[in-house]
Amino acid sequence: MKKTLKIISIVSIGLFVVLWISCKFNFLAKYNLIEYRNIFVLIYLFTSLKYFQMEVKDKNAEIQELKLKLEKTKRKI
């Protein structure tokens, strides 16, 4: 799931850049709407947010696991 979100965010920002460059050179004029570019930015922001939320959740779980292991080793000593 995280890999999919990362790919979607990269593709959406890539499409935004393509549309932005095409706007500067009047290329792909019929697809050159600001709404499309805004949608790609929103998709990028949403998927990046979800990706980083999942990263933080995974890291917090790992930190808790390491804390438990540390406590167990302290008890043995």
Rank of each mutant, 00 (worst) to 15 (best):
L5M: 14
D58H: 06
R75M: 14
T73R: 15
F46E: 02
M1K: 09
I39E: 01
K72M: 11
M54D: 05
T47V: 01
F46A: 08
I63N: 05
I7C: 11
F52Q: 07
L5C: 06
A61M: 08
K2D: 15
K2I: 13
K59P: 01
W20E: 13
N32D: 02
R75I: 12
N26V: 06
A61R: 05
T47W: 00
I7A: 09
N26M: 02
R37F: 00
S48I: 03
F16I: 00
I21L: 15
F52A: 01
L42E: 01
E55N: 09
L70I: 08
N26C: 05
F27K: 09
L5G: 02
K69L: 07
L28S: 14
T4S: 15
N32I: 01
V41N: 05
T4R: 13
L68R: 13
K6F: 11
E62L: 12
Q64L: 14
M1L: 10
I8W: 03
D58I: 06
R75E: 14
D58R: 06
I8D: 01
C23V: 08
T73I: 13
E35W: 09
I7D: 13
S48E: 06
I10Q: 15
A29T: 14
K59C: 07
S9Q: 08
V18M: 11
C23M: 15
V17S: 12
K76Y: 14
Y31D: 03
E35P: 04
E65M: 09
V11G: 00
F52V: 05
K30F: 02
C23K: 09
R37E: 06
I43S: 02
R75W: 09
V56F: 04
K3Y: 14
L42Q: 06
Q64A: 14
Y36P: 00
I7K: 10
L15E: 03
W20A: 09
K69C: 03
V11N: 04
D58W: 03
N38I: 06
K72P: 04
L5K: 04
F40Q: 00
I8L: 14
R75H: 13
I39G: 02
K24P: 02
F52C: 05
L15M: 05
S9V: 02
E55T: 12
E65H: 13
R37P: 00
R75L: 14
F27A: 09
S9Y: 04
E35Q: 12
K67R: 13
A29F: 05
N60K: 11
F27M: 13
Q64S: 14
R37W: 00
V18Q: 05
E62S: 10
K3Q: 15
L49W: 03
N32Q: 01
T4W: 15
I77Y: 14
F27V: 15
A29L: 09
M1P: 04
R75F: 15
L70E: 07
K76M: 11
T47C: 07
I34P: 03
S12Y: 00
I34T: 12
Y51A: 01
K50E: 06
K30L: 04
F25L: 14
